[in-house]
Write a protein that binds this DNA or RNA. Sequence first.
DNA 1: TCTTTGTATGCAACTGCTTGCATAACCCGA
DNA 2: TCGGGTTATGCAAGCAGTTGCATACAAAGA
Lengths: 183, 183
Amino acid sequence: MSLRYAVLTLLDIDPGSGYDLKRRFERSVSHFWSASHQQMYRELHKLHDEGLLDCEEQPQAGKPDKKVYSLTDKGRAELRNWVAQPAAPQKIREPFLVRMFAGHHLSRDELHGALDAQLQLHRGLLDNYREQNERVLKSDPALQERYWLAHQTLLLGIEAEKTWITWAEKLLVELEEKREETN
Amino acid sequence: MSLRYAVLTLLDIDPGSGYDLKRRFERSVSHFWSASHQQMYRELHKLHDEGLLDCEEQPQAGKPDKKVYSLTDKGRAELRNWVAQPAAPQKIREPFLVRMFAGHHLSRDELHGALDAQLQLHRGLLDNYREQNERVLKSDPALQERYWLAHQTLLLGIEAEKTWITWAEKLLVELEEKREETN
DNA sequence: TCTTTGTATGCAACTGCTTGCATAACCCGA
DNA sequence: TCGGGTTATGCAAGCAGTTGCATACAAAGA
């Protein structure tokens, strides 16, 4: 259900097309939600059918036309109403940790490889979030004030990545120690 | 796809029924995966149909009969094979952060309430994980050695909850400061 | 020139998961 | 004895999300 409201929130901040939304999801929401372009277009059609979005076709020079969506009053009301409700807690799902849970089936080298790949992944995410953070800190102070909470979610994303990285690094060290013990 | 392997891993450690699995998911895997009883039963049927699980009906005194599942050789091979493959990174999905992202629509009191509820939720999870940790530390050292990695995933869960709690507490303090500024 | 990359939109089939319901036997306390 | 809680299993409908495919135009590079 949250995709619906993630889309409404982004369009509330700034109107845009399905393609725009997809990129904004990757650039500025990726630390708490992700969605494919098919999901965007389907959701936009649905929201438009329900009268929560207006749609305006914009011809563009040198590029295909785009359909720019923006919130209707009904859409804004729906969003405000939802934000005030408690959100269902997310079901935690971490395929990597399922793998680690069965990790006694892995050789030391395989385990090392798996942990290292995960470490690289989270370092990449951390870099990405830090870049986003730099962009926010350089932006208009009035906007920073208005979207203060949105920025806080990014800071949580950064802390979460640090937690992962610290964990993986520590495990790699312990793995190395175990190797030396056995040799 | 990971539910399949989470189930295989748990049954590899110890055979059990759908009902058993549901409880073990709640007690010992909840920090990285969750599933409803319907998912369990469906998955067990599927795995049994594919010949990855054996099923033995056990009549019980004072309770309904249960179907106890255990891995076949094929099941063990499938699990070992999967564990060695890289896992697809999980799509991050946090409904609560979607709400915070649109948090400028909330009043100070509503925001305070939302953050506080989230704080309580994560404190509860942390308590739960710490109890699990105590149980592990009291268990047979040979098992601790064998399931060392499974234990490490729990320690990550604990650190992740601490990160959430620290974040929420800090935000509540900042919110209080903002309130004083305005008054 | 031709392929690749990026912009922009969409359908159809499928899988995975949730929700609501249903059954049945037992235990315990009011 | 009657309702509520626990153990134990399952079906059916629906929704959310994934995967694969398809189209079309333009710019940039080989």
